[in-house]
Design a protein around this nucleic acid. Structure first.
Lengths: 189, 189, 189, 189
DNA sequence: CATGAATGAGGTTTCATTCAT
DNA sequence: TATGAATGAAACCTCATTCAT
């Protein structure tokens, strides 16, 4: 399988960005990782920022599509929610660099996120709002959202740090159950 | 009231770091914000890194002490947990820059966190472990921790972004209740 | 003949270091002398110190090899000694900047000299010790060494200041004779 | 005995200059060594350069006077020469920092030396010229001078490095004898 | 006399980007 | 497409010197 330089650049940039941070990674670092020289990068990308944006868009879309499909396929609301959680964690476990990168990007360049469409977060938001509208989720939707997104991020983090152990499948299930029950069984009076 | 330059530097650095990121903030930015020249910074700090570390240590300790006191004063376990949550959010609302900075530091320089003592996170960890050991929290402690820390961070984030509305007191209460119920009422089968 | 930038940098740095001193010479000075910008220097050298060390090593080795060859080729002890003196002065006259630089480096960063191998001084030391062991040199070897190295340095200095005049060949001969006679004919009672 | 701040500054500056070099020593280093602050230095000296010059002048004069007296007191020419050598080494052993500093200054700011009067070197020069004129020294005076000054510097250096051992008195005598014999007994044909 | 904060110029180094080859 | 030297702006930091106190 022939891998194109352009994709290699994206791949190595992702690794480095997620490890060291965006500003902390230089074009030279990326070039060295790919095995080319600095100038060559500019044959494929106009600027470092373009790499940064393209990576965000690429993986943002991937995750969005994955989650969207998961929700659409589900037959019940509970299934939709849990499948969405599964999709998030599955993505995170399969592409930890990408997931970490999405979080870093959000954290440091949050304001620029609006430029992009198909943000995974918005899918969760819609889902939670819908479930709340239907009375399935009793917790106020803003809090529900905070609970879900915050927990997802941390579960991934703790899993990759070794704090949370166990098989990925198990972690996904446990997290989905925990979140579902938290949102549906608990009244937030 | 005379404000010392040293403190002004820390103050402005905190603001800028939490807004733009650490690497993204230059010594010149800080100097300009304070109203002095770059060289003057170095009369008060040996390096940019020293500012970075000192800020983390300072606010890490503040939050730690606040949470510790909250836990110690409580009479029941439920009170201890909720007061701890209160303390976190109270700190976050009063010093949003500091809270945001602590999170940024954790995210980007997580490996260096070990150098520091009195990390607020460790207090939460102890508390959750204890409550789990006593059977009060039924959720596995690692997941409980992920749920608590993740939600806390997001609630703060959504509040500061205007997604979550309402008085701070209300937000604190609602979050504490939500978390307590999630951990105690829900069985994570 | 294409001259490479890297060599040009070394060349100009040597000139400047030997004229003004190491610390007194800035990267900008060197860049200007070469006709490039400061940043360009760092494509060829990691730091100013690397230039400093590389220059020392380069010329230290050159001189060492020259002296070593001179000694090895000689048939008698007198010839060995005189040829060594010749080699020193020949090098000093041909590459006065380099010779001056070696002295400056020794003077100011003497402690770092140990890191390097093939120090010309050590050859002289061995030679003098050997000649003393064989009874050819009557003067105590430490004093002999002081006399030889000190005189060599000064002869070069006075020649380049115009205090000592005459053809280089003559200076070399006169110095060699003077030193040989001083060490062999004079009893140091 | 009350030591004045001004003298303390000179004293500590001398130590530091001779240890680390002139440019390498900062006003702050000196101030710290004295136990005062940077600003205070400027109560006593107009600039760093003034300290540099004053130190050179001070010790240059001291050595000059010492050597001059030694020469004047002598009854024979041999005594004059040897006493001059004694004076040099005595000064060097008693005030190694000062002697080292004089050499550093010569090395790095040789061109500025002309501004100063009573340079010890000139006394040696006169003496050697006179002795040569009288036929006592057979070696050409320029070479003689190189031999004497070079050897003196190196003997001091090797003594302070521990290469040359023995009591100071012995070193002085041996050096004086060696130099005298080298210059008078050896014909430099 | 002394302090020590501040300045301002200049030092070393980094790095995204360009460009001749 | 790729190279890698070079640019130029800007980063961090140093330090002689000044100055209000």
């Amino acid at each position: 399988m022939i891998v194109k330089t352009r994709d290699l650049i994206l791949e190595e940039a992702l690794k480095l960005f997620s490890e060291k941070g965006i500003k902390e990674t230089t074009i030279r670092d990326i070039a060295k990782a790919v095995g080319i020289t600095e100038g060559a990068i500019y044959r494929h990308f106009e600027s470092k920022d373009q790499i940064v944006y393209e990576l965000f868009e690429k993986y943002s879309h991937q995750l969005y599509d994955k989650v969207e499909r998961a929700i659409k396929r589900a037959k019940t609301e509970e299934e939709a929610f849990k499948k969405a959680v599964y999709a998030f964690l599955e993505f995170a476990f399969k592409k930890p660099d990408a997931f970490r990168y999405l979080n870093i990007f959000h954290y440091l360049r949050g304001k620029e996120v609006r430029k992009f469409k198909r943000i995974p977060f918005s899918l969760l938001k819609e889902l939670v709002l819908k479930l709340h509208g239907e009375g399935v989720i009793k917790v106020e939707p803003e809090y529900a959202l905070a609970l879900v997104t915050g927990t997802l991020e941390r579960v991934f983090l703790y899993k990759s740090m070794g704090i949370i152990k166990g098989r990925q499948e198990t972690v996904k299930e446990k997290t989905a159950n925990l979140l579902w029950k938290s949102l549906t069984e608990c009244s937030q009076s």
